[in-house]
Amino acid sequence: MAAVLWVHLSKAARAARESFADDTLRPVTIKQLVDCKEAYPSAELAIDGMPTTQVTLIGQIRAVNPQAINITYRIDDGTGLIDVKKWIDADKGETTPRFGVDTYVRVYGRLQSFNGKRHVGAHYIRAIDDFNEVNYHLLEATYVHLCLTKGTSADGQPQQQGGGGMDTGGDSMFVDGGYGAGGVGDSAGMQARLSPCSRNARTVFNFLANSAPGDGAHLNQVASGTGLSVRDIMSATEELLGHGLIYTTEDDETWAILEC
């Protein structure tokens, strides 16, 4: 019975994570798009291990190639080149704006791979009026990359939350709620001890700190609360146990924060 429940939970967690990747708008440099790889053929493209579909990028238009049903812009942000296809909406006809060569534009779109060639299917392209947006975007792309690969130090840790609906990638500068923000264990000392931990470990720790400081929470509660898979939670708690940040209470699958 328990096993059935587990399978169900981890399936739900996985489904939540898939849709999460689809709903996350990630700021990227073009080099990241050119470099990113599928985990296995026909898998989702992943950047820093995070499946990535919706992206936003900036760049200068280097070439415009209008066709009957779409316009292909070749875009260069100084880190690489990528083709961005904007489909022409027949209903709007002539009102679809066109951009000239050398214009700086911001693109929101889907990363797509077709016959081994990568392009971005643009939902929306607009010209950049304030050049500072270009620099801001490059910093934001770096910031998100660092958050995902190294975690953050003290405050406002963006976290991956399966069902939480918190937009880690796109809105990263402002993520401050959910289990990302510290709770009971949010003292500077605790955060420092948490800093070498992985993202999942922090998520689990903060969930425990916020929801069940005293008695601890069972695996099932943690799974439904964080949206992580059972396997991820087991490795996250393993890590936290190793650092002496949590301890097991009633059984091996119930954990509580070790107050210091």
């Binding site: 440099t29 080099k31 990241q32 880190t79 690489g80 490059l138 792309a141 770096t142 990359h145």
Partner: peptide, 12 residues
């Protein structure tokens, strides 16, 4: 400065 510190995002 940032682009030189995090070259993997910016340059080949």
């Amino acid at each position: 400065e940032i682009s030189h510190q995090h070259r993997n995002l910016f340059s080949y």
